[in-house]
Amino acid sequence: MKITGISIGKLIIPLKRPFKTALRQVTTAEDIVIKVHTDEGITGLGSAPATVVITGDSHKSAAEAIQNTILPAIIGMDIDHRETILQRIQMSMVHNTSAKAAVDIAVHDLFGKHYGLPLYRFFGGKSQCIPSDLTISINEPNEMAADARCAIDAGYHCLKLKVGIDATRDLTRIRAVRQAVGPRVALRLDANQGWSAKEAVRTIRTLEDAGLDIELIEQPVSAYDLDGLKWVTDHVTTAIMADESAFSPHDVFRLVSMRACDLINIKLMKAGGLGPAAQIAALAAASGIECMMGCMLESKIGITAAASLSAGVSVITKNDLDAADLMTGDPISGGICYEKDTLILPNAPGLGITDVKGWQEIL
């Protein structure tokens, strides 16, 4: 089965409520959705959100990178040569990780369809069901507390709170949420690079002294401040997780060599797809460091791909794959489904996605 071409479109899905972090605020999820065509008439699906403040990829840049650079590198190749195709995707250009991820996901979808194999089984088949947290956007303390209570009522047992705009105000936000949800709900914090190293240590120690029982802190300092990240990790008890500092396998090798963090957050849009993400997971496993599978604000195509790797690999012990559950509708037939805080992987081949409604071709 040979690759013959790619169609590129866009999918826009409104959110249930605005998504706010220390870096951005959005009200819709917007994905580039690609269809990789083959000479046997089988189509592979992939997707990429534009997250310019993290990956630097816009919709326009991702679409043009796929059409003009990545496709020419793999056109005419047989899907059986998966490893070579994945290498060519990564070597076709530097950066542009979201564009690479979209094509990588579609190639894996094709591979699974060709052999009648669900992707979660291809990656190891650890479990068909995985739990996820739910993200609470950064807002005023009372609003975050109310949102957290709604999430618990909807069946979630673990919440990730967005913080990082103002450390003093963040403490008030966290206290309000803990009071609203009680002691049994797991709380994770994501500072999105919003604190300095000293500010992070001071804030985290205050949380520890107050007994607020925070499970982990995600990316407290700037992505490039690896020394600062290590300094925070070495000076607090709470587990520290690298996110924006951990794009590639090379990044993760450096992090684990420095022992700069306790956990790694793997995201397909940072890594460049399932191939490099699987390499990161293997590297973390060899280093004795557990991983979380995370996501951008992306549709169920990317979420299903990420969940497939998480459900297959033992070193991925935590999940932040709630993005598709933050949206007002579901235009995608098949793929993962949510049952409260649990994602259930499909047994259909590949991603198990059969249709994408509202897809508008742009290239």
Results as ranks from 00 to 15, higher is better:
1 M>T: 13
2 K>I: 14
2 K>M: 15
4 T>C: 02
4 T>R: 13
5 G>F: 06
5 G>L: 06
6 I>L: 14
6 I>P: 02
7 S>F: 11
8 I>D: 04
9 G>T: 02
9 G>L: 11
10 K>R: 13
10 K>M: 12
12 I>R: 14
12 I>Y: 12
14 P>T: 07
14 P>E: 14
16 K>G: 12
16 K>H: 08
17 R>I: 13
17 R>H: 09
17 R>V: 11
18 P>I: 04
18 P>F: 03
19 F>N: 03
19 F>C: 10
21 T>G: 14
21 T>R: 12
22 A>F: 03
22 A>Y: 05
22 A>I: 08
23 L>R: 13
23 L>D: 07
24 R>F: 15
25 Q>A: 15
27 T>V: 11
27 T>K: 08
28 T>D: 15
28 T>K: 11
28 T>I: 10
28 T>W: 02
31 D>I: 04
32 I>L: 14
32 I>W: 00
32 I>A: 01
33 V>Y: 00
33 V>W: 00
34 I>F: 09
34 I>T: 01
35 K>F: 05
35 K>T: 02
36 V>Y: 04
37 H>Y: 03
38 T>I: 10
39 D>V: 05
41 G>K: 08
43 T>I: 14
43 T>K: 11
44 G>L: 10
45 L>C: 01
47 S>H: 02
47 S>L: 04
47 S>A: 15
47 S>P: 01
48 A>H: 01
49 P>N: 06
49 P>Y: 05
49 P>K: 01
52 V>M: 05
52 V>Y: 08
52 V>H: 05
53 V>S: 07
53 V>R: 04
53 V>D: 08
53 V>P: 01
54 I>F: 13
54 I>M: 13
55 T>H: 02
56 G>Q: 10
56 G>D: 02
56 G>M: 11
57 D>W: 08
58 S>K: 09
58 S>W: 05
59 H>L: 15
63 A>Y: 00
64 E>H: 07
65 A>D: 11
69 T>I: 10
69 T>K: 11
70 I>R: 03
70 I>E: 07
70 I>M: 05
72 P>M: 08
73 A>P: 09
74 I>Q: 08
74 I>C: 09
75 I>V: 15
75 I>G: 06
76 G>M: 07
76 G>A: 12
76 G>C: 07
80 D>S: 12
80 D>M: 13
81 H>F: 10
81 H>P: 00
81 H>W: 03
81 H>L: 05
82 R>E: 08
82 R>G: 01
